[in-house]
């Protein structure tokens, strides 16, 4: 059975069991674990995955997991996660062996770093490219689109609905935020397929 992917523009970034429940209570069927200890919330996450919630995890920032095959096997087989995010191409290649969707993170901090990130995009293309910080997406989208047509997620520093809408208007398919107010606002918008 294939795990669910991401549908809809808002991807709530959760960091513990309480924020996971808040996102699910608002009707979200997808979450990103961006920070915090994954191991401290394993029970609720496994339960959510069993109910068909798409769970993605940022392997570069989450605590408690090694960036290796054993961790990937645990996420894919034991927990039923949908995918992983990382800046590390070799980790993403390994993840695809476990049928996890791969989201390649790219730091948009300066033009040098962006260039390095775009040069490291894996082949075959990842499920999506996550640009951090999301607020940089409007400025860097032309350079990204010149390099790839892969779907773009914006993650990091989105704290207002206006910022989220600017990121989406610039061409991102998905925007992630850790703010409950934004989850509320976007939960009223019908999901686009």
């Amino acid at each position: 059975m294939r795990t669910p992917g991401v549908i809809g523009a808002m991807l709530p970034a959760v960091r513990d069991g309480a924020s996971l429940n808040q996102a699910l209570d608002l009707g979200y069927r997808q979450v990103l674990i961006e920070r915090g200890s994954l191991l401290a919330m394993v029970g609720p996450l496994a339960g959510a995955a069993r109910q068909g919630i798409a769970i993605f995890v940022n392997l570069d920032a989450v605590e408690g997991l090694a960036p290796d095959s054993a961790a990937l096997a645990f996420l894919a087989t034991d927990l039923g996660f949908s995918g992983v995010l990382s800046v590390k191409p070799h980790l993403l290649k390994d993840a695809s062996r476990f049928r996890l969707r791969t989201v390649q993170r790219i730091h948009a901090l300066d033009s040098t770093g962006l260039e390095t990130g775009l040069n490291s995009i894996v082949s075959p293309p990842p499920y999506a490219i996550a640009v951090a910080p999301a607020v940089a997406v409007p400025q860097v989208m032309p350079a990204i689109r010149a390099a790839t047509s892969t779907p773009i997620w914006g993650t990091g520093f989105v704290t207002t609905a206006e910022q989220a809408n600017e990121v989406l208007a610039a061409g991102a398919d998905v925007v992630s935020s850790g703010r409950l107010e934004l989850w509320r606002e976007f939960s009223r918008i019908p999901v686009r397929d």
Partner: peptide, 8 residues
Amino acid sequence: LLLYDDLG
């Protein structure tokens, strides 16, 4: 100070 993640 690399600002890619407000949570960090």
